[in-house]
Nucleic acid binder design. Structure first.
Length: 431
RNA sequence: UCCCCGGUAGCUCAGUCGGUAGAGCAGCUGACUGUUAAUCAGCGGGUCGCUGGUUCAAGUCCGGCCCGGGGAGCCA
């Protein structure tokens, strides 16, 4: 008897196969009984019928409960009456373990309950499809960079330096060396590495102790960051645009069945093509004010502002050259207007908001020292970072893409917590 | 941190004017040879988040605390 996965079941029509998996649900009509069976690669309806299934195996159906683990064998046929295309007539049923009182029933549950049972919720179809899309997004990004000669640089999780701002760091005692912090970004290390390899990227978890309680924040999230020597801000935007189009195309090609299962409208994704709209902060402010926003020059864009702006366009947009004081210390000052910096945020369409933050980095030693001091950051931990401006400093730029926000956008999800297997939020550390 | 909402059966919820607890689903028992969140009949199931107060009497009114959800700020 051939063993196989449900994803390959179409190749085995007419054959006898063995499937190993779990009971998703059961239905019964007396002498004909149905198991909705899943194996991690898909679902199939398995049928037990009096006269066709051996008596002993037929009787085992009575013990089956939701999520019981079983191994089934029998012939596969195409079956229009089944929900999938195929069906198995069970000739042998082996019970591995009977699950008792599985908490997630095929009825509605509250978010809090589902998050408390996240370890089991992962098995539900919707969650299954979301994580499949996440998997493809990450694969697409790795492939994109690999094909273009970028070198993967693994940046440290435990750091002594500050990345974005001291107020949002998770800290821990590091032996006798004092405080260590969980990384908020790998950027500073990438800047060092791009002076060695030219084009580099990193992919890892980042941590922000921000007490955010919104659908768009997690305390632990994954970020893809890239850094390129001799690249300016325009080149940075070109790169982001190219990469994002590649990712969307990849996902539409490789994961459309999952998007369809999630009832994602594919039309808005099909219009994600170059070129993206690019508007300066100076242009955006009056535009927003005209649309009713309270924003004043100097303010960062609020969530509502991002929504207003993205709904004016059919594809992602860049907003570039923000006021200096609304952004991080390492961004390069704009030579044409020192009140602004050379940076760009990429806003996803359909109201999803910022998914990428990028900038040209300050490569002038004196300006960088001045910026660190202006932000009231200690100079000493940045000694090595300042070295990069002493030994062959060059213009360079990079960006960070929030993986969860990208997953939420591509899947059409309202909340970030379903885009990562085990979300870390303000009030949840388990499971 | 601030603002809003909630916590009653395993789950989702109802509970009127303060008078001592209800439904659907799940579970269990049975019927049914093509079910699609199957259907039908029956059965079991409660520290009303915790705590203090008002009252003859509190799930219900008041205070404090705990937990969760939504939003703001901040960001990816």
């Amino acid at each position: 008897m051939t063993e196989c996965y449900i994803e390959d079941i179409g190749k085995h029509v007419g054959e006898q196969v063995t499937l190993k998996g779990w009971v998703y649900n059961t239905r019964s009509s007396g002498k004909v009984r149905f198991i909705i069976f899943r194996d991690g690669t898909g679902m199939i309806q398995a049928v037990l019928a009096k006269g066709e299934t051996p008596e002993e195996d037929f009787a085992k159906f009575d013990q089956l409960t939701q999520e019981s683990s079983i191994i089934i064998s029998g012939p596969i046929k195409e079956e229009p009456r089944a929900e999938g295309e195929y069906e198995m007539m069970v000739k042998k049923l082996e019970i591995i373990q009977v699950s008792t009182d599985y908490p997630i029933t095929p009825k509605e549950h509250s978010t809090g309950f589902l998050m408390a049972n996240r370890h089991l919720w992962l098995r539900s179809t919707r969650q299954y499809h979301i994580l499949r899309v996440r998997n493809e997004i990450i694969q697409a990004i790795r492939q994109y960079f690999y094909e273009r000669g970028y070198v993967l640089i693994d940046t440290p999780i435990l750091t002594g330096s500050i990345g974005e701002g001291a107020s949002t760091l998770f800290e821990t005692q590091y032996f006798d060396l004092g405080k260590a912090y969980l990384a908020q970004t790998g950027q500073l290390y990438l800047e060092a590495a791009c002076m060695s390899h030219g084009k580099v990227y990193c992919f890892g978890p980042t941590f922000r102790a921000e007490k955010s309680k919104t659908r768009r924040h997690l305390t632990e999230f994954w970020m893809i960051e890239a850094e390129v020597a001799y690249m300016d801000l325009v080149g940075d935007m070109d790169l982001q645009e190219d990469m994002l189009c590649y990712v969307v195309e990849w996902v539409l090609d490789k994961a459309s069945e999952h998007l369809v299962a999630l009832e994602r409208d594919l039309m808005p994704l099909l219009s994600v093509k170059k070129p993206f709209h690019r508007i300066s902060y100076d242009e955006a402010v009056p535009k927003l004010q005209g649309a009713g926003s309270q924003i004043q020059w100097g303010d960062d864009l609020g969530g509502e502002d991002e929504t207003i702006l993205t709904k004016m366009y059919d594809r992602p947009i860049f907003v570039y050259n923000y006021p200096r004081d609304a952004k991080a210390f390492y961004m390069k000052r704009n030579p044409e207007n020192p009140r602004t910096v050379l940076c760009a945020d990429l806003l996803a369409p359909e109201g999803y908001g910022e998914i990428i933050g990028g900038s040209q980095r300050e490569d002038n030693y004196d300006y960088l020292v001045e910026a660190i001091q202006r932000y009231n950051l200690p100079l000493e931990p940045f000694g090595w970072y300042l070295d990069l401006r002493k030994y062959g400093s060059v213009p360079h730029s990079g960006f960070g893409l929030g993986v969860e926000r990208t997953v939420a956008w591509l899947c059409g999800l309202p909340h970030l917590r379903e885009t990562i297997p085990f979300a870390r939020t303000l009030y949840r550390l388990y499971p």
